[in-house]
Design a protein around this nucleic acid. Structure first.
Lengths: 226, 226
DNA sequence: CGCCATTTTGAAGGTTTTCAATGTCAGTGG
DNA sequence: CCACTGACATTGAAAACCTTCAAAATGGCG
């Protein structure tokens, strides 16, 4: 009886997963979903939780069901460098070499789907579609990294901030939110770090954009005026 | 007779490939190497050749046997952004979505191994080790992209240039050259573009490093004095 | 309400860029 | 053989931009 109930819950967890259509799990058939849902755990974490740490051994990979994660590396000088903000439907935690290559920290309360890497690898080798889908996800990471390179190398502070706002707007759309208003859950400090600027410079850039009527800030949040 | 000779040449091409130990082809057994060597073409191109173009349909992927390739994207503003320099043993040309995501241009005379993507995919799906090896190569690209992000976001012009020199030195070692002297085959303009600086700033940074006795430039090339 | 953390604003200082000129080097033709 | 040319690199000075340091304003939360 309890067994049945447990299985029922498990099936629900993956089969009825809100973000499944957006991720590689979409490639799994009902049987697979049934099986893997016995292995995955859902975790609710408060804002500011370190989900995984650079150089730690990889035991799990994660999908974001709800909330926002910031991803950063500590470089050889001991400086923190943010390399991405992840939204519902994004995954993280798979790296070559057995160890995580960055820190992942929640900047809002989050709900995560935690998949043991060992189980996941099993499904990867069994399911070619899953494998391909996973490859697409990695290539997408690469695409995002190169977008960040383009922003860092080319643009002025004002352009960087504007581009950042557009990117966040797109991320929102990606998980079913409206593109406007833009909900900046991260601090100015995080934005500055991501863009290779100082916090005061980001603040001034936002002010300039406001004065130029490119954006507007009111009680509803930050609005893009195009 | 001619058939035999042709096959013999083909076997030689992959089996005796100078860079095989450094790339995913290393995972193929002799039978596979024999088969695939019938599909690959070796191409010798002069300096300044555009090997592939952003947004073009993908027909081939490439391994570098000899020479140096620069890889760059044209962003929405029409600006060129260099995202990497590739050396013998590096591969390029595989992207998600069926179209190349960057330009690849030789900055020295190059010898390339050109593999039809269709054939390559066939071997990928047949050979799990090859698949894994290929995945490692993609993850390595991601690692390099993130190194570039760290350099672009954090460092001063002088630190950027010094880091660039170290990176090129490592690349040299990676394909069997000594770490010193550093052979800068790319122009100052390319270095500046890669580092998000102007050519004059790169030039000044190199001068500063020379004055500080961190590097030395003589008829042998650029020497790192550590 | 008042505290603390975060954000904004101001002014001075520092670094990089811009514009301009000079220097270097390889290839070409007189 | 040497001057000329064009591409690339270096240097100088002024301007622009970003950072630093300092102070004021804002906003969430006990």
């Amino acid at each position: 009886m309890q067994e049945t109930q447990s299985m029922y819950r498990n099936i629900n967890k993956c089969l009825n997963c809100k973000i499944r259509s957006k991720i590689f799990c979409d490639k799994l058939n009902e049987d697979c979903l049934d099986q893997i849902s016995k292995e995955v755990r859902h975790e609710n974490l408060p804002k500011g939780s370190i989900v995984l740490s650079q150089n730690d051994e990889i035991f799990n990979i994660f999908n974001i069901i709800h909330g926002i994660i910031k991803v950063y590396q500590i470089n050889e000088n001991g400086d923190e460098q943010i390399i991405g903000f992840l939204y519902p439907g994004d995954f993280f935690g798979s790296h070559e070499g057995g160890r995580y290559e960055f820190y992942a920290e929640s900047i809002t309360p989050v709900k995560l789907c935690k998949i043991p890497i060992k189980e996941f690898r099993k499904y990867l080798s069994l399911n070619k579609e899953l494998h391909d889908s996973f490859y697409v996800a990695v290539m997408n990471e690469l695409k995002l990294a190169r977008m960040q390179i383009n922003i860092l190398a080319k643009y002025s502070a004002e352009e960087k901030v504007l581009d950042f706002l557009k990117m966040i707007s797109m991320k929102q759309v990606g998980h079913g939110q409206p593109e406007n208003p833009i909900n900046l859950q991260m601090t100015r400090s995080d934005i500055a770090n991501y863009l290779g600027l100082k916090i005061e410079t980001v603040s001034r850039a936002i002010t300039k954009l406001r004065v130029k009527n490119i954006i507007n800030i009111n009680e509803n949040g930050l609005l893009m005026l195009n």
